[in-house]
Amino acid sequence: MVMRKLELPLSQTQKVRFKRAIERLQSLSSTANSDASVIVTDSIPVNHDDAFLKGHGTSEVDGELLATVCGVVERVDKLVYVRTLRARYKPEVGDIVVGRVIEVSQKRWRVELNFAQDGVLMLSSMTNPDGEQRRRTSVDELNMRNIFVEHDVLCTEVRNIQQDGSLQLHARSEKYGKLEKGQLLKVDPYLIKRRKHHFHYVDTLGIDLILGCNGFIWVGEHVEVRDPMIIVDQKNDETVSSSTNNTLKDQSHTTLETRQCICRIGNAIRVLSNLGFTMDLEVIMETFNLSNSKNIDIYDMLGSEFHVVVTENEAERRRAKRRN
């Protein structure tokens, strides 16, 4: 979660550098939309002659449009709504989310997603790990714990949002499923934008990065997405000995370098989250490379110096972007 007040022991020079970087960031964004930010009960200026639609975070009292949350006013055609900053995740159908199983119950798993309610993943909306069609038998139900148990981290997609606000998930693809050998990081959902791609594979490091729309980020060792068709082919081709070989490979340990990379990326994300900067693959990897090039140890990344360096870098990056 964001530290609004950076509680780090900064030396005098660091303080000055940090302040200057923050001021630069402020001046860069101030021109964009300066007075769009509102707080609770601020009235939102609208043109009453034109028809307008009131969206989330607004309410109409005595013909005046008032904000009900703190955030930024956004206008899309006739729609006027307030985009909240620090709030829980607001799901949309098709979002890729990372979550943690908290309960195994009748034909379903309950998943913690940083939403107002737990997400529900039905057994029937899961494909079998080997790509087979699922048979709805009671045996299948009894074996649910073979797939996910409590505290497992998994990656799914939002299937739909029910009338009463409850959230249904599905995992009908090989890319979804259980996540192992890595770290789960929790950041504020507003720091992650919806993009075309949320799954990233950093091939130089052999690391998978999943930016869940709900603010949960997974950093872990790369696993090959098994295409069910290919697996079937392999089964036909190869002998039994190779399949036992495969299971042995699954149990193998993650190498030290990979684990260090995971931690380094994890800490990069933590720093960005502490500072409240939006993240995508590019920014995270830039922070990662910055820590490498400056020869900062993994455990030093959460110290004051690196926070200041990242802030300066971010200011520089945004300025460069503006120029282009």
Partner: peptide, 18 residues
């Protein structure tokens, strides 16, 4: 209270920026 909230909201927004 409004002052505090306003300051906070502004801070978050410009740090986030797009």
């Amino acid at each position: 209270i409004r002052e505090v909230l306003e300051e906070n909201t502004k801070q978050l927004e410009y740090r986030r920026a797009a």
